[in-house]
């Protein structure tokens, strides 16, 4: 799936990915993979886990997976299918007890809080849940203050306005976070080239940048982006090319 401002566009299923791109090559340019089930209806967690297993079969980096996690069992199923971390969104607002139980069971480092934020007409930001379908009352700062007190290991902050546009990250969404946060921040939504990734990483509040943009899959886009970032002095982990081994 590709999405633009949260409207989904079907690209192809996992077989399409395997046929059209050598994902195991692309995967060598990333530190971590995030796999989300963005189905809006008729979610089938079993099929999703089968796909996750196949993705993780030849990807050897940490994987965060989520989309529709509503119970310990949902999380456990993902963790047994190759995921190392669980991504949660709606329960951050609707079921904070679940977040606590997940952290107790699997450890705080296992929980990634995924937060979708949209600028309103008055320049304030709001958080949306349920696949971006439901606007929460109170502004984003209010919710982020609450969420930062939950036992989560990372915060994945996504700009719905920039999502899929390739126009660059909205760095202002970070202003919604409380200061003195001890949890790593992953910035998402809007990257369209390596310059955008560098802009995100240059912000001292940002620990990681995420991208799902098509440039990842075109030619050696992601490989080149990583190479440029390393050449520019961004401290990314380095691993040898497989053929050198």
């Amino acid at each position: 799936m590709l999405s633009r401002n949260f409207r989904l566009q079907r690209v192809g299923d996992f077989n399409w990915l395997k046929t059209n791109y050598v994902f195991s090559n692309i995967s060598l340019s990333i530190d971590e993979l995030i796999v989300l089930d963005v189905s809006r209806q008729n979610r089938d967690p079993y099929t999703f886990c089968e796909h996750l297993k196949r993705v993780s079969e030849d990807c050897f980096m940490p994987i965060a997976a989520g989309g529709g996690v509503r119970s310990i069992e949902d999380a456990d199923r993902l963790l047994c299918s190759g995921a190392d971390k669980i991504v949660v969104n709606s329960p951050l607002y609707s079921n904070q007890d679940l977040i606590k139980s997940l952290a107790e069971r699997f450890g705080q480092q296992c929980i990634v809080a995924s937060i979708d934020i949209k600028r309103d007409t008055g320049n304030d930001y709001h958080m949306w849940v349920e696949n971006g379908g439901r606007l929460l009352e109170n502004n984003a700062s209010f919710w982020l203050r609450k969420i930062s007190k939950l036992p989560v290991g990372e915060i994945y902050l996504n700009s719905m306005d920039r999502d899929g546009t390739g126009q660059g990250y909205d760095l202002d969404i970070i202003n919604n976070l409380p200061s003195h946060l001890h949890v790593p921040i992953i910035l998402a939504g809007g990257a369209g080239n390596s310059r955008h990734l560098a802009q995100g990483l240059a912000d001292p509040r940002v620990d990681a940048v995420a991208t799902a943009h098509l440039f990842n899959f075109v030619g050696d886009g992601l490989y080149q982006a990583r190479r440029k970032l390393i050449a520019a002095g961004v401290e990314l982990p380095i691993w040898s090319v497989w053929s050198e081994l």
Binding site: L28, F60, M61, P62, D84, S240, L245
Partner: peptide
């Protein structure tokens, strides 16, 4: 560390 999660560095180590 987790060699199975450490890209080619980890695969090389397991090899």
């Amino acid at each position: 560390f987790h060699p199975e999660k450490s890209q080619t560095n980890g695969l090389a180590l397991l090899q």
